[in-house]
């Protein structure tokens, strides 16, 4: 871990318009929860809000965060300024990951807890279940998207295809996708705390191990890509 890289990444996240959009997405989820809870009975609409926050807002926040800490710098090559230093590439990757992870947990998973508590104050367990699901999925999402950002210029589109098409659309049709879907693993963990989250049925052990393997593997891969970072001319 490198404090300077972490600080620079955090500044890149908070800076400019990206920061506003990053704040806006969780804001909307929580606002929706507040409006729904004000207009309906306790617990009504819980599923709809949690689904929105978990299947859409969380991966998009993770993607935005991971892409922001690495994407532009790799894209325009200005990451050489960070790499032309006697600092281990893996420590750079881990520091960047830490910044993206913090943003994903704070702006992707935490809103699940907050909106859950707003919608059904009588059952905090359910809210914490969703939070756990979001934390596990967010941990793996941000790592995977970081690896994508280190791998390709089209990281954002590939990430969207994975999260929304593979896990979202296809995941609803083909049950087997739960074995290779980060969202499903998160739910599995969340269901352990509160069955209302609705586990995917992969088993807790598999879900945890799979999420961990993806996280560690992705961050390692990102560091390895940085080790082989190639500077190209403008030509």
């Amino acid at each position: 871990m490198n404090a300077t890289i972490l600080r620079l990444s955090a500044q890149a996240l908070a800076g400019r318009r990206r920061g506003i959009v990053l704040m806006l997405i969780p804001g909307i989820v929580v606002l929706l929860a507040i409006v729904v809870s004000a207009l309906t009975d306790d617990g009504q609409g819980y599923e709809a809000v949690a689904n929105l926050g978990f299947t859409l807002a969380l991966p998009i926040v993770a993607l935005l965060a991971a892409a922001a800490v690495l994407g532009p710098e790799v894209d325009d090559g200005s990451i050489v300024y960070l790499l032309a230093k006697p600092v281990s590439r893996h420590s750079i990757a881990i520091s960047k990951y830490a910044a993206a992870w913090g943003a994903t947990i704070g702006l992707g998973a935490l809103p699940l807890l907050v909106s859950g508590l707003v919608l059904e104050p009588s059952d905090p367990g359910r809210a914490f279940g969703w939070f756990a699901a979001g934390a596990v999925a967010g941990t793996a999402y941000s790592a995977l998207f970081l690896a994508l950002a280190a791998l390709t210029r089209h990281a954002v589109v590939v990430g969207l295809l994975f999260a929304l098409l593979w896990e979202g659309v296809l995941g609803n049709v083909l049950a087997g996708i739960r074995w290779v879907a980060i969202g499903a693993w998160g739910r599995e963990v969340g269901a352990e705390i509160s069955p209302l989250v609705g586990g995917a049925g992969t088993g807790l052990g598999y879900a945890l191990i799979a999420a961990m393997v993806v996280t560690v593997g992705s961050v390692y891969f990102a560091g390895d890509r940085l080790r082989s970072f190639t500077l190209r001319g403008d030509e």
Partner: peptide, 22 residues
């Protein structure tokens, strides 16, 4: 580029997600 892509998706799909929830 990346930011524009995510922002557009956020407007289209999160917007749709909220409306669907409501």
């Amino acid at each position: 580029r990346g930011f524009a892509v995510v922002a557009t998706i956020a407007v289209l799909l999160i917007g749709n997600g909220i409306v669907t929830a409501v």
